[in-house]
Design a protein around this nucleic acid. Structure first.
Lengths: 331, 331
DNA sequence: CATACATATGAAACGGGTTTCAAACATTGA
DNA sequence: TCAATGTTTGAAACCCGTTTCATATGTATG
């Protein structure tokens, strides 16, 4: 409630001096410093961050734009980023925008209007709003790939390779009829994964068998039902992420279809939950923490940066667990 | 980048007129209005929310303080609250504080300094910081109970009754040796649940058998191992929440202990995940959406409020699914 | 046509920390 | 002792959208 001017009056100094004491921006004679500190303590003075932000034109805030706060993948990402932001003296501000372009536009605009210092863009729509192009604060794409005019850096994993690894693993494990549950095709990672599936099918002379699904438990269940009806011979499922894989497992279990004996299953992302499923989920892991670190670094330590567009692709690794048959030594 | 003064100059009017056009706070002659709108469009002007907040002393923001963004229970809550805030023209600002009192204090202070309009407090520690008492913005406790000097309203569910229902259900289903996995005892809901367990044990002349666990997958696994060692005769588990229940199931499954045939299991909260487990989790549901609505309402529509302390206890309901044996008609 | 009243509009103050600038004071060296 | 350099400090400007207040213009009534 109290302002710096009240504190100043109480301490018998100018507001400028109080500011200098608080921020250590200049020397203040010890005797006055003491008086100021006493006045601050006495009035429970908390400097108004809004006024500070207005002048400094920096809210010390990084915005994170994600499609869903209910999706554990993004929640895990947000947790990493939150910790990293805090370590660097920033706040993370979450924007939950679904796949609604209008909400995305609004989020960016709000961040700009709030003097945020950067945006990590982890959502995706088919229409990328112009507001990203002319965005006066730096934008880093995470878990997706945007062209240079939209983002100053892109951080993503080798989704294509991930799906290849998964496909080859399913084939190694003896699958003859693999169905791909495609993710939303406006999502970069989902497109890459599907492309790998398609390419492997093509190389091996297999027929493409796909269904499409949003990243959502409910839809995952429904789509799996459809899948079983449309492709009764299925013996392998490549799911677009772990959420959908877990939903698929649920349906298989209900139908008393044994996993991995009758149908083998691979997910993507290696979310915490994937080891909690029984049987544990075979999945493709991306180095989420390292990707989060890179994203934050691109926004915060942009000192000696070359102006060129930066792309960072991280390697993925297949984590064999219990929804596929073991291969190799333990066969 | 452009300011209201630049827009004003371009339109040949004063900043006040631009402000009036943007906010519709006063009549502006159509011809000038047009010029202003044109100038806004031409300069891509976005009003600086920070300056607005500074003057209005309101950021149109509600803070939400939660212990963990990784816990789906809080994530679901945040999702509801986010939607509600938006509907009412507010932003939700998330603070992930764990059980660290210092982080909680910092979160409250930051919200005050940012001119937030209210706080929903859903975290909990053993030390409640003084900063809550003298907090100049309204605080509502959600999923917990604070004394009147700390919060202007408390919204929680009948946790005690929930645990009683769960216990009675387990007993009805034939359990003779029920172990309670207690949650962190500084958490109100965890205390209530334990008390109900204790009371039922007492009433029925059963020995108390408890272990304690944080709300965390990893700890849930470890604690379940301990439990099986300490209480080998266990045939029923009352878990402090669904996360822990799911962890417990995982261990039981690994050990080839049949659920519900050998051990029956009840969780709490009915998170989305609980139907995704196979078998589906029997749990106690609280009306989360309604509770979120009540919390938001208490902060936003506090017009004709009586100054008295408000407590709202919501009813809970037992959701019988597959981790307990059916009773009643389907026995 | 003059008085009264409503409407439109800009200048200026405001909110509250921060920073610049210059004045005031202290210290060092000649 | 005086000039020169360094240090401390407060007044005032600044960030920028909003609002007040007074002026100016227009309309309605007598």
């Amino acid at each position: 409630m109290s302002s710096i001017r009240e504190v100043a009056k109480l301490a018998g100094v100018s507001p400028a001096t109080v500011s200098r004491v608080m921020n250590g921006t200049a020397n203040v004679v010890p005797e006055k410093r003491e008086r100021v500190l006493a006045a601050i303590a006495q009035t429970d003075f908390v400097p108004n961050e809004v006024a500070r932000t207005l002048f400094k034109k920096s809210a010390k805030t990084i915005g994170l734009i994600i499609p869903s706060i209910r999706n554990p993948y993004f929640t895990q990402l947000a947790d990493f980023l939150d910790a990293l932001a805090e370590q660097n003296g920033y706040r993370l501000s979450l924007y939950n925008v679904g796949r609604d372009p209008e909400k995305q536009r609004a989020a960016i605009q709000m961040l700009v209007a709030a003097n945020a210092d950067g945006v990590i863009y982890a959502a995706e729509t088919d229409v990328l709003h112009e507001s990203l192009k002319s965005c006066p604060i730096p934008v880093v794409a995470l878990d997706t790939r945007l062209s240079g005019e939209y983002a100053q850096a892109c951080i993503y994993a080798d989704y294509y390779q991930g799906a290849r690894l998964a496909m080859e693993h399913l084939l190694d494990c003896g699958c003859k009829s693999i169905v791909c549950i495609k993710g939303p095709q406006q999502v970069y990672s989902a497109r890459c994964r599907y492309e790998a599936y398609r390419d492997v099918c093509c190389e091996r002379g297999l027929a493409e068998q796909t269904v499409t699904c949003e990243y959502d438990f409910g839809e995952g269940l429904a789509v799996t039902e459809t899948l079983l009806e449309r492709f009764p011979a299925v013996d392998g499922i490549l799911a677009c992420n772990d959420i959908v894989a877990i939903s698929a497992y649920k349906v298989l279990h209900q139908r008393k279809i044994a996993v991995p004996q009758q149908i083998q299953l691979v997910g993507f992302d290696d979310i915490d939950l994937s080891t909690l499923l029984s049987p544990e989920l075979t999945t493709v892991r991306q180095p989420l923490r390292e990707m989060a670190e890179k994203a934050m670094e691109q926004l915060i330590r942009r000192d000696n940066e070359t102006e060129m567009k930066k792309e960072f692709m991280f390697p993925v690794v297949l984590i064999q667990r219990e929804t596929t048959k073991r291969r190799g030594t333990e066969q």
